[in-house]
Design a protein around this nucleic acid. Sequence first.
DNA 1: CAAGTTACCTGACGGC
DNA 2: TGCCGTCAGGTAACTT
Length: 276
Amino acid sequence: MPELPEVEVTCQGLRKHLLGRTVENIWYSGLPLRTVFDIDRIRDDLEQKKLVAVSRRAKYLQLHFDHEALLVIHLGMTGNLGIFEQDTPRKKHDHLEWRFADGTLLRFNDSRRFGSITHVPAETVASLEKTLYRTTGPEPFSEIFNGAYLQRLARNRTVAVKQLIMTNQVVAGVGNIYANESLFRAGIRPARRIATISPSRWQGLATCIREVLSEAIACGGSTISDFVNASRETGYFQVNFRVYGRQGQPCTVCRTTIEKQMIGGRASYYCPVCQK
DNA sequence: CAAGTTACCTGACGGC
DNA sequence: TGCCGTCAGGTAACTT
C-alpha cells in the first residue's frame, strides 16, 4: 500500500481540492471490500453534508463532515483516491464515487479490494481509539515514539528488528518500503535480533524512521505501481530509495552490492557493509 | 503472551 | 499463445 507518506500526501490533496464542498450523492460498485459496511446508512448520514476537514491516523484517511461524523478510508495495498471532473468515465476497479455539489468527483479505485471504508457516526467518534484503532500504536511523529519506547517494547520479544518496526501496535504507518529505508539510514541490518541493539541505536532508529517518512512526504510519496495522489500527480520519493528493490545494485554509499533476504515473508534489502 | 500462518483479491512477470 | 507458480505497498483473524 500506500504507506504513511502516501496516505499523508493523499490527505493534503483531498484538503486542497474538496474542503468545504458538499456531498451530493454516493455511488458504490457493490463488490465487497476488506470490511463490511452499510452503504445505505452511509448515504443517509453523509449525503448533503459538507466536508470540513481531512486528517490521518496511521494509514487511515479520515473525512470529517459538518455534523461531526467521519468516513474512514484505508487504501489497502492497491487503493487510491482520485479527483475527477464531472462526466469522466469510470475505470475498472472503481468501487466508490462521491459526487460533490459542484460536480467534482472523488473516486476510490482498488484492484485487490484490500482497502476498507468505515462509517463513524458522530456519537461514536470519541471512542475510535478504543474501537477501530484499538490495535494501532503511536504515530511516529508523536513524542512518545523514541528510542526508550522502542527498547522497552523490544523486551520479551525475539523477532528481527524489521518485524518489530513493521508491527502496527508498535508504531503506526511503517510498511515494508519505509522499514527497509529507515534501517539502511540507521545502519542496522533488517534481520538483526532486537535483543542485541544498544540504547543509542534505538534512538537513532526512531530518528531515522521520522526522517525517512518526512522526506517521503515532502517528495509527494513514492510511486511503486499505482499510487497517485489526490490531484493525480505521482510522487517521486522512489528516486531516493537506497535499498528497496535494489538487490544486485551497488550501495549508494560504499558501492557494495545490495542484498535481498526474506524476513517474516517480506522482501528485505540491505547493504552488508553499511548495515550491521 | 509472542510469533507464525492463513485469508482476503487482482495483476504482472518469469519459466516452460 | 497460454498455463502455472510466485510475488506485490496491508491487516486481522486464526493457530501454535
